[in-house]
């Protein structure tokens, strides 16, 4: 009996990584999963915020995938390190703010690091669910060797779903895995993956349309760019990333924007930010909690209050009472007339 070989698999939670792992398990390879949390992942957080999402399935797909596969999953917080990937991608961005190629290189390099740090666990190689031609930016025939080289993984990076279209890697050359039993998927057609999923009996798997993170989303990217422009610097903290997913964002002036909760769930979530931000709320009527991101002076309170009032139940009232609270100061109340629908300009909406 030869030694059982071990692989660490990048798990996004999508179908491809699920299949890649199962293909190797079928060959008797022992697999563990690793999942990187950049802060932008579609997984998790927003699901808990909005009211109407409460009933939606709240599973984390990476955890779900690991459970289906019966493998351990290590989730790694890479929020800080990821900033440099997003801010300075050597290979540029995709259709939106998604630096997919650099992101892949980064993640594989983190997996390489993991293998080294956990040498006692004896991982022999790394696998991903990449498929040639699947994604226009990061998954092309030319990008596969770039990822292998720049990540430092070189020939210990195996892509079971398209291995047959690529030069043989060490696990294949050494006979740890049988190349013949790997696949040659390519292109955007998902049918072969779906057929394989069927064969393995996987159901209810996640198939995100755009990609694995919010950076492929047009609206989200626009908000991120707006945030950087508003601040005059391309920096962000975890709270910023979260807040871009919550509420309606309106920027009536370059110096500040309003984040207006869209329902009670979001209001409650924004409550948690009261100590950090100026908040505005209608008190004479029901209305959403709003936080102000940026620098607002008292000259603009009237404007901001009018906008906030527009989104509360008192929108048609002559006057509403508003409470403004600035962290560390006494609360301020004022009455204001809600702006009319036409007064809330289209291009304020981020």
């Amino acid at each position: 009996m030869t030694k059982k070989h071990k692989a660490i698999a990048l798990i996004s939670g999508g179908l491809d990584s699920l299949l890649a792992v199962r293909v190797l398990q079928e060959q008797g390879i022992e697999v563990e999963g690793i999942n990187f949390y950049t802060g932008f992942c579609v997984e998790g957080h927003t699901h808990a915020i909005r009211n109407h999402d409460k009933d939606k399935q709240k599973r984390n797909n990476a955890l779900w995938a690991a459970e289906q596969l019966g493998i351990k999953l290590h989730i790694v917080d890479v929020i800080e390190e990821y900033k440099d990937v997003l801010l300075n991608p050597k290979h540029g961005y995709g259709a939106n703010m998604n630096p997919c190629l650099d992101c892949k290189v980064f993640m594989v390099s983190k997996a390489v690091e993991w293998v080294k740090e956990n040498r006692k666990d004896g991982f022999d190689f790394i696998i991903t669910g990449e498929v040639i031609g699947q994604r226009p930016m990061s998954q092309r025939k030319e990008t596969m060797p770039i990822i292998s080289e720049e990540s430092g993984a070189d020939d210990i990076l195996l892509r079971p779903l398209c291995a047959k279209n690529l030069p043989a890697t060490k696990p294949e050359l050494e006979g740890w895995v049988d190349r013949e039993k790997l696949y040659d998927f390519s292109g955007r057609n998902r049918k072969p993956q779906m057929a394989l999923a069927e064969k393995f009996g996987f159901k209810d798997y996640a198939s995100p349309a755009g990609g694995c993170c919010f950076l492929t989303d047009k609206n989200y990217s626009a908000k991120l760019v707006d945030l950087w422009e508003g601040r005059g610097s391309r920096e962000y903290e975890m709270d910023d990333i979260m807040l871009l997913k919550v509420g309606r964002h309106l920027r009536p002036k370059p110096e500040f924007k309003l984040i207006i909760a869209r329902d009670a769930g979001e209001s409650k979530y924004l409550e948690g930010y009261r100590k950090q931000f100026v908040t505005i709320q209608v008190v004479s009527h029901n209305g959403p909690l709003t936080i102000i991101d940026g620098d607002i002076t008292s000259d603009d309170y009237e404007l901001a209050a009018g906008i906030v009032a527009r989104y509360g139940q008192g929108r048609d009232a002559e006057q509403v009472e508003i409470e403004i609270s600035v962290p560390g100061q006494e609360k301020l109340t004022m009455t204001t007339k809600p702006l009319s629908i036409d007064e809330v300009l289209e291009d304020w909406h981020v």
Partner: peptide
């Protein structure tokens, strides 16, 4: 405080 933890932490625990 995130109710999502109620499904995620048990899932994580089961796996590991």
């Amino acid at each position: 405080t995130d109710p999502g933890a109620l499904s995620d932490i048990p899932a994580w625990a089961r796996i590991n």
